[in-house]
Amino acid sequence: MKVAYWPGCVSRGFTPELHGSMAKVAPLLDLELIELDRAACCGAGVIAEHNQELADTLNARTFALAQQTDGELMMNICSTCQGSQSECQERLDANGEYRSFINQNLADEGLAYEKGLTNKNLLWLLVEEIGLDTLRSKVKRPLTDLKVGPFYGCYIVRPVTRLGIDEEHPRDRYMHMVIEALGGTVIDYAGVYKCCGFPIITMNKQASLKMAGRHLGDALDADADCLVVPCPLCHLNLDLQQPLAAKEVNRELGLPVLHLPQLLGLALGLEPKELGMSKHVVKPTSVIDWSASVVAGAPA
């Protein structure tokens, strides 16, 4: 399957292991990625608050670039991008006059967004396009006995109507379903659907770190070996900032946090180092130990 691939900004900035692991995992999932390397930041919802027309224009430009490719749909690996792009697309698709108005801002580049682009986060694409049965059939190293806590964050689960979450598409359960399809054990804990704290880190660092620390502590108390996130901004707060978060909540943490493609890669047979796990601030020792014991235990 060929997709117009939007990696977002952070996966090419402070979480390069996300972009790198997606590139490694894609061929194993029969995904051909056409990278949208001319597209701009989605605005993360912040630009839309400041100036809606600006955010809608920037995202319409990204959508138009995606529509110029021969990808079947657009795929992203950042739930913040998914949330903010869905918000802009909802307006662009709802009103033809408004869409034409926005497209005028793109005219000097010869671009125009046409209503009806399908833009899916990797998580949604895994379940809805690839399918859990196919995913199961590709697993080479089942995540048996690996206890994984899903951390959805905000942008991929709220608001439910805009994000197309309903009985037919229980997208707020997809991470649970994927972990199980990969053979892992899902750990439910208090922070599964809570905010990681990143959006307020520049305004109130202490509160932001406390939020991250509390979720990590809750997952540890529930006996998780690691968390998995569909959002690199959540990863920044939960992994990069984890040493500071530990100080805020006054306890030892040391819980590895994996990007979704990294968890997939482990189950599809890739090694932790290939998936960039050595770049994490919190060394994913429990995951690497698990990986080593599975490989050691495998029949020769």
């Binding site: 100036n51 809606q52 027309e53 600006l54 809608d56 920037l58 430009r61 009103n95 408004y98 801002n105």
Partner: peptide, 16 residues
């Protein structure tokens, strides 16, 4: 795009 949009005398918004 920034110059054009931010140069408008009034904001254009669509509230659904």
């Amino acid at each position: 795009i920034y110059a054009k949009v931010e140069g408008r005398p009034e904001r254009v918004e669509l509230n659904l």
